[in-house]
Structures are given as C-alpha cells and as structure tokens.
C-alpha cells in the first residue's frame, strides 16, 4: 500500500476545506440552525409530539441526514471533478498509486468533512431542542456509514460529470427532494396509507428512519432493513467505482 499517497490526497482535500471555512462550515451550519429555530423552536412548539418525541427533537436526525447526504455528495463530487476540470488529475493517474488508495484519499476526506459537520449540527441542535441519543454507537455507525456511502456516490458523480451543471444536478434535484420527502420533517405514519407505500420506494426513508431510531428508538421501518439498505447502496457504489477504474471511464482514453 502506498499510504503516503493516500495521506497526501487526504490532507490536500482537508486543506482545501480549511481554506474555505466560511463556505464549508459556517454556511451549512447556519442554514440548518435556521430550520431548528423556525421548525423546532417557533412552529414546533405548536406541533404535538410524534411518537412521544417533541417535534423540535424529532426533526434533528432528519436534518442531520439532509446535511450529511448533500454535503458528502457535493464535497466528494467536487473533490474529484475539479482536478479533472483543471487537468491536474494527470498527476494522480500517473503516480504509483492504486485506485483503492485514490478512493480512500478522496472519499475519506469528504466523509470526514461531513461527519464533522453532522456533529457540529448535533451540538448546535442541542442548544435549541432537547436531544437524547438512545444508542450512541448505532448513531455513530449510521453517521459514518452514510457519510462514506454518499461520499462514494459523490465520487461517482464527480467522475461522471462533464460540466459544473451535472455536478449540481443530482444533489439539488434528486437528493434534496428525496430527503425532504423521506421524513425529515414528518413521520410516514402521518401520511395516508397510499402515500405511505409510495414513500417506501424512497431509499432515503430507510436512512432517516434508522438514524432516528438510534436517537429515540422510534422508526417507521425495521432498523435492520435500514442498515441493509445503507450497506446495499454502499456495495453498489463500490461496484460502480471499481468498474470506473477498471474501464478507465472518463479517466483514461
């Protein structure tokens, strides 16, 4: 293993993040805090409890998940797309480094960033609403697994994209709506039966439900199914990345 190379990529990516703290930390934390203030504290105080959890606390796992998914995806996508765009990717591709080491460097850095952001959001949330974590280990497991999976997903988008627009399309037009409709702000049980079934086709539902279970032990679907869905998507992303490097898709002519 060329661990020095993985470390170089990882630190390079973390340094890039460090240069843009305002955009990379302050902005997402501020926008998520606004959700807490508006939905948690202001409107939430007039919404009845859901499954015995106050509304403000109920939305915390969903909002963390929203941030985790969008930040992991867009961070990792940008991380690998930018060197492709500027041409500096030549150096990565001609270095004595394996695809696995490249992926660990880029995806590891993107996942680290979104885990840090998730934890900052959690800390911020506890200022506004009473947060309780029933299964901290599972909470962290879901956090890490989701961050890794969606960083990997972002990496795929970053290789697939051939313009800045495509880079934004998936996070903005697919992930954000699916997360909003995936039970960030409500329980699926509040929907009519027909829409409940429709909602179950949304993979994000399983992520939020499992994550919320680790906080409050309430969930819409079995937590094992949530875990299996996350691992399944992780596996799928790994296969796609493996295929991309094997064929040199959009990397090598």
């Amino acid at each position: 293993m060329n661990l020095a190379a993985t470390r170089a990529i990882y630190l390079f990516e973390m340094a890039r993040w460090g240069r843009t703290l305002l955009q990379s930390i302050v902005a997402p934390v501020l926008s998520t805090s606004l959700y807490f203030i508006i939905f948690g504290a202001a409107i939430g105080s007039r919404v009845p409890e859901i499954d015995g959890v106050s509304y403000g606390a109920f939305i915390v796992p969903g909002l963390m998940m929203l941030l985790l998914l969008t930040e992991s995806t867009s961070n990792a996508a940008f991380g690998i797309y930018f060197p492709r765009f500027t041409g500096t990717i030549y150096e990565i591709l001609s270095a004595p480094i394996s695809p696995l080491e490249i992926v660990i460097g880029y995806v590891g850095a993107a996942a680290t960033k979104s885990i840090i952001l998730g934890l900052i959001i959690l800390a911020t949330a506890s200022f506004f609403v009473p947060v309780r974590i029933a299964h901290p280990v599972w909470m962290l497991a879901f956090l890490v697994l989701t961050a890794l999976t969606f960083s990997l997903f972002g990496f795929i988008i970053g290789i697939w994209a051939d313009g800045f627009e495509k880079l934004q399309v998936i996070p903005m037009l697919v992930l954000t709506p699916l997360t909003f409709l995936g039970g960030t702000f409500y329980s699926l049980n509040m929907l009519p039966p027909f829409w409940q079934n429709v909602a179950l086709m949304n993979p994000i539902v399983y992520l939020i439900s499992g994550f919320r279970w680790s906080f409050y032990e309430v969930s819409e679907v079995d937590v094992r199914i949530s875990l299996a869905m996350t691992l399944g998507f992780l596996g799928l992303c790994l296969v796609v990345v493996w295929w991309m490097f094997r064929t040199g898709y959009r990397l090598k002519p």
Binding site: N2, L3, A4, A5, R7, A8, I9, L11, F12, A15, R16, R19, P83, T86, G87, T88, Y90, E91, I92, S94, A95, P96, I97
Partner: peptide, 26 residues
C-alpha cells in the same frame, strides 16, 4: 512527467503543490 498543458492547482502555494507530488509517489 511534465505535461504539455499548464495544469496546476492554482489556489495552492508552490511549496504545498511540490510537497504534495512527493507524497503522491510514496
């Protein structure tokens, strides 16, 4: 390898980018 195009990490410093290359080669 020195490529034909001037592909550089424009926001990086000279020191950082040259050190990065060394790390990349293990």
């Amino acid at each position: 390898l020195v490529p034909q195009e001037l592909s550089t990490d424009m926001f990086e410093t000279v020191w950082a980018t040259v050190s990065f290359s060394r790390g990349l080669h293990g």
